[in-house]
């Protein structure tokens, strides 16, 4: 049973970390203050890496745990898990997305010399972040606590945080050229 507690805790905190990463990603790339942007970017990366570590712990724990029947094959073929097949499929697809988004983010500097990569990396990174939305779906569909009020509150606050970050970004958006034109020097 200990493993099951570890699995749940790691899953919940991983979701919170990726929510933080997603919200900061949205907010920081729209920020026009270089010093603030650097710190937002720094916490964005740290949150994503922490989330990834917890996500891996979550996956190992649910597979190793004997409380529910989840075989390691779901990692390769997300459909057909014994335990809540649909929720597990959503969770595995979320895992693919989040791992891919993190890899794309980490590889950013290393692949910067390829013009094609640097042109499309942001698109790839944002597209892979769909994994975050799937992780919220997974939290609402799977797990012992999914209907507990506190767990629902966490899942919905995560959703609200990212949607809020999106609205904030849209509200404060200013093209760099305009900011520059208004810059007094």
């Amino acid at each position: 049973m200990t493993l099951w507690y570890v699995a749940r805790a790691a899953g919940v905190v991983a979701m919170i970390m990726f929510t933080l990463a997603a919200a900061l990603g949205i907010v920081s790339s729209g920020n026009r203050r270089p010093d603030r942007r650097f710190w937002l970017q720094y916490v964005h990366r740290s949150a994503a890496v922490t989330g990834l570590v917890l996500l891996i712990a979550h996956v190992f724990a649910v597979i190793a745990d004997s409380n529910v029947e989840i075989s390691p094959t779901v990692l390769l073929w997300p459909f057909g898990s014994g335990y809540r097949p649909f929720a597990m499929a959503v969770g595995t697809l979320a895992l693919y997305g989040l791992v891919f988004a993190t890899i794309a983010g980490a590889a950013r500097g290393r692949l910067a010399r390829f013009a094609a990569f640097s042109r499309y990396w942001r698109t790839i990174h944002i597209a892979a972040s769909v994994g975050w939305a799937l992780s919220i779906g997974h939290a609402l569909l799977a797990g012992t606590d999914r209907t507990a009020p506190w767990m629902l509150a966490i899942s919905l606050s995560c959703l609200t945080a990212v949607v809020g970050a999106g609205f904030y970004r849209a509200h404060t958006y200013a093209p760099p050229t305009l900011v520059r034109a208004g810059r007094a020097r």
Binding site: R32, P34, R37, F38, S118, P176, R180
Partner: peptide
Amino acid sequence: TRCDGHGLCATL
């Protein structure tokens, strides 16, 4: 060809 003048380099 890439620089947009975000200004992080000068800050750091």
